[in-house]
Design a protein around this nucleic acid. Structure first.
Length: 225
DNA sequence: ATATCGATTATCT
DNA sequence: GATAATCGATATG
């Protein structure tokens, strides 16, 4: 019996992303997002994604064609599309499908695995709350950890992902300061729900979660796992 | 425990 | 000038 986290960690290859957005969104559940920063590695496991289908998806940024902002989506798969929203937050997507199509997957939540202290500092969460030793009640620790990366804006803040630094970054290379990888973990159950926070095409079940994960966005119990 | 609302700015009409 | 793939604070039961 090998613990999954001790298996080899391999970057996801370009072809992983050269598929339609729904397949990629489902396949990304359980994969790792890794951020190298000043010799440290911050890591989280993806527990929540959304698929955006490209020019035919009214809710997608690509819906009205190529612009300066969304140009990455029309390029090769496996690259970061980072945008700024609501005057406050960044959101991280991975481009997918073939070049010229504009599908992508929004990464909405992670289970933090390593670098929790650094994430807490970046998020303005008291570091002690997130560490096992100091925080006695397990529940309060888990509530603090959940604040780190349970939402698209939160995870970008925790990992220091901004548009200026990471838009267009190749996420398939272990040499990148930000990349995606497989450690052999396989989620038990996957659920599909409508996407969050959109007006158009709001009913399509294009949000995917690892069923029952405590690290999903939104309040626990809401947004059916 | 749940609901509502304000912040703050890039982008598009 | 309106809107947005959000978050956290505040109000209310």
């Amino acid at each position: 019996m090998t613990h999954p986290r001790l298996q080899a960690v391999r970057p996801l290859p370009r072809r992983f992303f050269e598929r339609d957005a729904v397949k990629v969104a489902r396949a990304l559940l359980g994969k790792l997002l890794l951020r190298r920063e000043r010799g440290r590695v911050l890591a989280g496991r993806i527990v929540e994604t959304e698929a955006y289908l490209g020019v035919n998806d009214a809710a997608a940024h690509a819906a009205s064609g190529r612009t300066a902002r969304n140009a990455v989506l029309f390029g090769p798969a496996g690259h970061a599309y980072v945008y700024f929203i609501y005057g406050n937050h960044y959101c991280l997507n991975v481009s997918c499908m073939l070049e010229g199509e504009a599908g992508c997957v929004l990464i909405r939540a992670l289970e933090p695995l390593s670098g929790l202290r650094q994430m807490a500092r970046a998020r303005g969460v008291p570091v002690a709350e997130c560490t096992a030793l100091e925080a006695r009640p397990l529940r309060s620790r888990r509530n603090a950890v959940r604040k780190l990366t349970s939402g698209p804006g939160r995870l970008c803040q925790a990992l220091g992902v901004t548009r200026a630094r990471f838009n267009g970054c190749d996420l398939t290379s272990a040499a990148s300061p930000l990349h995606l990888a497989d450690d052999g973990f396989c989620p038990r159950g996957i659920a599909a729900t409508p996407r969050i926070g959109i007006r158009k095409a709001a009913a399509e079940p294009l949000r995917f979660v690892i069923a029952g994960s405590p690290f999903l966005s939104g309040r626990p119990g809401t947004r059916e796992t």
